[in-house]
Write a protein that binds this DNA or RNA. Structure first.
Length: 285
DNA sequence: TGAATTGTTATCGT
DNA sequence: AACGATAACAATTC
């Protein structure tokens, strides 16, 4: 289930091989995965050069020359496979294939068929439905503060909303919330400035660490990463919190499996408004 | 066998 | 009425 760090790793791996190549032929085996339709995408793709490959949120972006953009979203189980010229390929769930001018082939393998391949005109590649890029300079504490306070939503579903922040998925959201010591059900509009500063830093740190470790490999879809060995809460139900030794628990937030340290991540600040002056009690008078 | 997974869309409730 | 939460859905693996 590739999130931002996994997609970034994939783009860095395949981008250099694809840049400068011309698409000789595009073949799609599952029409429903190709938008607006297979005929259009084939026509717009064949004979065009791939200028560069980049990432926007969890989308892989092929910039085409002279014009056009091809977006690939891997969703749950999509992955790329590279077939060198003349080499044989055997994979179980090939849904699409790019044949390149040097004889190499890029295969799109997707067991669950949730992935999408979409051709767009340059101007219409992304509507306003995609949010801020969390590793961009534009993602400042103030920007995050405005996003959080503009709505009153549960914190985790808000962070997972791709139209708000682009690229966070279930794993890195849980990890960022643990690092910021915030509860996933916290009201987004009620965070303090200090908490927002912590959350902003946590999001960026956990995504950068994920990229540095080539992403997280927790199933057969994405085998290359090492970040799974450094997760603090995701998939650690029953294990000890590395910060306070409390037991990590699983809960359900917005239909998603969620992992927290119940001691580090409280719904409200403990004792807020109550412990006014704990050290003011003087014996005698 | 059912739980888990993503993002979109439809629907329900406040 | 607008917004937020919730459910359903696609398909497969373990």
């Amino acid at each position: 289930m590739p999130e931002l760090p996994e997609v970034e790793t994939i783009v860095r791996m395949y981008g250099p091989r694809l840049a400068g190549r011309t698409v000789r032929e595009f073949i799609a085996h599952v029409p429903a995965q190709v938008l607006p339709d297979v005929a259009t995408v084939r026509a717009r793709l064949s004979g065009r050069r791939i200028e560069r490959v980049s990432r926007r949120g969890k989308f892989i972006v092929f910039q085409l020359a002279p014009a056009g953009v091809l977006l690939v979203h891997l969703r749950m189980s999509g992955r790329f496979e590279w077939v060198a010229p003349g080499a044989a390929a055997q994979h179980r769930h090939i849904r699409a294939e790019w044949q390149l001018d040097d004889g190499a082939r890029l295969l799109f393998d997707d067991a669950r068929k949730f992935g999408r391949i979409r051709f767009c005109d340059d101007s219409a590649a992304f509507g306003d439905r995609i949010g801020v890029e969390p590793l961009d300079h534009a993602f400042t504490v103030d920007v995050l503060a405005r996003l959080l306070r503009a709505r009153r939503r549960q914190l985790k579903p808000l962070l997972l909303d791709q139209s708000v922040v682009a690229g966070l998925g279930n794993i890195y959201t849980d990890e960022a919330l643990w690092r910021a010591q915030l509860h996933p059900l916290a009201n987004s509009a009620r965070l303090s400035r200090e908490q927002i500063v912590e959350l902003h830093a946590a999001i960026r740190r956990v995504l950068r660490e994920g990229i540095r470790r080539n992403g997280t490999s927790i199933d057969w879809v994405y085998p290359e990463g090492r970040m799974q060995n450094y997760l603090k809460v995701y998939g650690r139900t029953g294990a000890a919190c590395t910060r306070c030794r409390a037991t990590i628990v699983a809960l359900r937030v917005g239909q998603r499996g969620t992992h927290i340290c119940p001691n580090c991540q409280r719904r409200s600040v403990p004792g807020r408004g109550r412990r006014i002056a704990p050290n003011r009690t003087r014996s005698g008078r």
